[in-house]
Design a protein around this nucleic acid. Structure first.
Lengths: 134, 134
DNA sequence: GTGGCACGTGGAGCGTGCTCCAGGTCAAGC
DNA sequence: GCTTGACCTGGAGCACGCTCCACGTGCCAC
């Protein structure tokens, strides 16, 4: 079982030192172990949990909901179905978000093509270009 | 050519009245036409532009970059290739974001499956469940 | 023993993107 | 003529998620 200094934990997880302290402060991390002089020593478990946090965060889960997940996790095995529900809802939210992004991306690509077409028109032939609605 | 009251424009575009005024204030919209008593009347062109804004906003473009796009658009046709470049870069950013979401979604689904497996283990057979790294 | 460095704490501050508020104008309806 | 409602303005305030700061400790190298 490795112990990570704050610097190593930051390196490993990609969170800044301040963010790690912040997450501990708000209870997203449970209190991190300390060495003799009071400095944090992150465990493998902490690093793993931070991986989960990063995953949830990067998929757009707000901190409040991550906190709820953290609390469920701490509360023990009887909360597993709640955790499944929470994650499944989030999974669906991510699915929806991706579908939305794809849709909007289509509009952007359409617009790019519109501009390309405008550029392709020889100068004299171009009376007046009005932009389409979106 | 229809004219939209602020309320209608909000309805049509999904932006709040305050947001519409805010966008005009910061220059994301050019100054909206006013009627005799100083109330805004949005044109079809405004509504179309707001559709573009919504599309860019919802795909995560920061306001500063939308402002740049707005300025290019106002500057005239000689900026079209710049606009293409801007939109193409954003299109790529959206593509990357989607790929990222898919990757992280995989991890979430993996975790859900892990929890489902835990639930499937009959009570006595379960010595101790440690969570995987993520 | 002096620097430099990695860490600690509590609390303030910040960037983004709105959102709200007080106080006022006009038009329409009762 | 009074209320209601949609709008106006300038400016303050807010939610979120960090990020920075001042000041202090302990350890190691020179």
């Amino acid at each position: 079982m490795t112990a990570y200094t704050p610097g190593q934990a930051a390196e490993e997880t990609g969170f800044s030192l301040d963010t790690l302290r912040y997450y501990e402060r708000i209870g997203l991390l449970e209190p991190i172990e300390r060495n003799a002089v009071g400095q944090r020593r992150f465990s493998d478990g902490d690093i793993g949990w931070l991986g989960m946090i990063r995953c949830l965060r990067d998929t757009g889960m707000p901190i409040a909901e991550m906190l709820r997940f953290a609390e469920l996790t701490r509360a023990g095995e009887h909360t597993i179905s709640d955790r499944i529900a929470l994650l499944a809802a989030h999974d669906q939210a991510v699915e929806d978000k991706i579908a939305d992004l794809r849709r909007q991306q289509g509009a952007i690509q359409h617009k790019i093509q519109f501009y390309r077409d405008v550029l392709a028109i020889p100068d004299g032939l171009c009376e007046r270009q009005d932009e389409p609605a979106s």
